Simulated scan of single mutants.
Amino acid sequence: MEEKKLLDKKTLTKSYNNWMKYNLVAMSFEFLEALGFALSMEPVADKLYKDEPEKKKEMMQRHTVFYNTEPQAGALVTGIAVGLEEQKALGNTGVTGDLINGLKIGLMGPIAGIGDSMIPGMLIPILLSIGMGLSSNGSPLGVLFYVITYNLIMYFGTRFLFFKGYELGAESIDIFTGEKAQQITRAITVLGMTVIGGVAASYVNVDLKAKVALRGAEIDIQSILDGIFPKLLPLAIIFGSWYLMSKKKVSPVKLILIYFIVAFVGVGIGYLFL
Rank of each mutant, 00 (worst) to 15 (best):
T78Y: 05
G106Y: 02
A217S: 15
W19Q: 04
S241P: 04
K164Y: 07
N17K: 15
K55Y: 05
S223N: 14
G227K: 11
A26V: 07
N18G: 12
G115C: 07
A200T: 11
E171Q: 14
L32W: 12
I269H: 05
E33C: 05
M245R: 06
A34H: 10
K14H: 03
G115V: 07
T13N: 09
A200S: 14
K5S: 13
M27A: 09
I237N: 08
I219A: 08
V44P: 02
A81L: 12
P252Q: 11
W19K: 00
S28G: 10
A45P: 00
D226P: 09
V253M: 14
L84I: 03
G142A: 07
A38S: 07
A34T: 09
D226L: 10
I238R: 00
F160H: 10
S172L: 04
I175W: 12
L128W: 03
G91I: 02
L168W: 06
Q61I: 13
Y259V: 14
I188E: 01
I175V: 15
P252C: 07
T78D: 13
D174E: 15
L272T: 11
I175Q: 13
K104N: 15
P110A: 13
V262S: 02
D46A: 12
G216T: 07
F145Y: 09
I111Y: 02
S135I: 00
K56Y: 02
T13P: 05
L84T: 00
V147T: 10
E179P: 04
L161D: 02
L12Y: 03
L35I: 11
T78F: 12
R159L: 06
V250H: 04
I100W: 01
L39K: 10
T78I: 15
L127A: 03
T69V: 11
F37D: 02
I196H: 01
L141P: 01
T149C: 12
E33N: 09
T64F: 10
L272I: 14
P125H: 06
I224W: 01
V204M: 06
P125E: 14
L123E: 06
G97P: 03
G197C: 15
L233C: 03
R215T: 13
A213I: 08
